[in-house]
Computed example of a mutant assay.
Amino acid sequence: MRTALVTAVAGAVVAFLLGLLTFGVQATVHPHDVPLAVVAPPPIAERVRAADSPEVDIRVVGADEARILLADREVYGVLEIAASGATIRLNPAVNPSGTQVAQQVLTGVAQGAGLPVRAEAPAVSAADRTAPLAASALLWIGGMVAGVLFVVLKGGRFRLVSSLGAAVLTVGSVVGLLAWWGVSFTGAAVAFLFAVAGAFALLQAGLFKHLGIRAMGILGLLYLMAPAVAGQVPELLNPAYKVALWSWTPFRFSTEGLRALLHDGAISTEWWVFAGIAVVGLVLVLAGQKTQPDRPDGVVDVGVDQADGLPGAERQHTA
């Protein structure tokens, strides 16, 4: 009876936590301080400033500054107002959720000023919008499956070969899959995929080495909760989720970095993040090398004869 109650409570607790960490992110989405830029003559600029609200952060700037802000992904959209009408400029390297909010708000601003409005942005296919997050998740799964199989199949001393081999092959499969969907890759984007896959695989291999199959409790939870956060922009997240999850999840860095590189953008922080993850993973893999294969339950056979665990057994003999 006690076991039945414990397992029932455990199931309910796990369901609550997973709901809180996954679906709760999407259920609490609401825009706040979404950065936008507006280029307008002085009379209209004052009306635009008056339209500011807690949901958006509208900056009235010059045309050159606005385009720089958009190229650097400092704002999610730019509204340029002239006597002939208004133009909304969007950057495909910005998270689609952010550009959607930007277009809706800026369209409302232009219509409020009584001006015809048109949107100007490079065409982005559904595959291009899906690719960054999909690639991040698939690279994580590839390394995780290789790591857990290495434990289950009692792999020997070639864990590093397994993890790096899985990273290379997974990148190949992901690039092939996305190319089939019609996504075009730059050389920098492919190099970044290798960096992400290698970092993921090394970290996972290190955890599997020291925790055995129990590492799935950590890696599986990260996979379930991280994509729901990484697919959002921080200005749409509940502040609690932004601090507790979005601020550190590696899926966020891989998704944003790949999206920028697919659209000829530049990144810097993301390279350092995955270099750091790779170093941590490599240290875990190389620390305390074991000479015997792992067991799936994480227990290492230390070579003690069964009889040695039975007091006096070795002294039992027939006269």
Rank of each mutant, 00 (worst) to 15 (best):
A319R: 04
G165M: 06
V48H: 07
A313W: 13
D308R: 11
G198K: 06
T130W: 13
S125F: 02
V151D: 15
N95L: 14
L245V: 03
L169C: 06
D301W: 11
Q26Y: 05
G276L: 04
D308Q: 09
H30W: 05
S268A: 15
I141D: 14
D294Y: 02
L133E: 04
V229W: 02
L310A: 00
I88K: 01
A226Y: 07
A240D: 10
G257I: 12
G288R: 02
Y76A: 11
E74D: 15
G257W: 08
A83L: 09
V109M: 08
A119F: 00
L138Q: 12
V61D: 01
L106N: 05
F192V: 10
A113C: 04
R315M: 08
A40H: 05
Q232S: 12
T269A: 15
A27S: 08
V56E: 03
L203C: 03
Q26S: 11
L211C: 03
D264L: 10
G165P: 04
P293C: 13
E65V: 15
G19K: 05
Q100F: 08
A71F: 05
A287S: 01
W180G: 01
P122R: 05
A134E: 13
P92M: 06
V105D: 06
S53T: 13
A275K: 01
V229A: 13
D264F: 12
Y241N: 08
L164Y: 06
A8H: 00
D301Q: 05
L90Y: 06
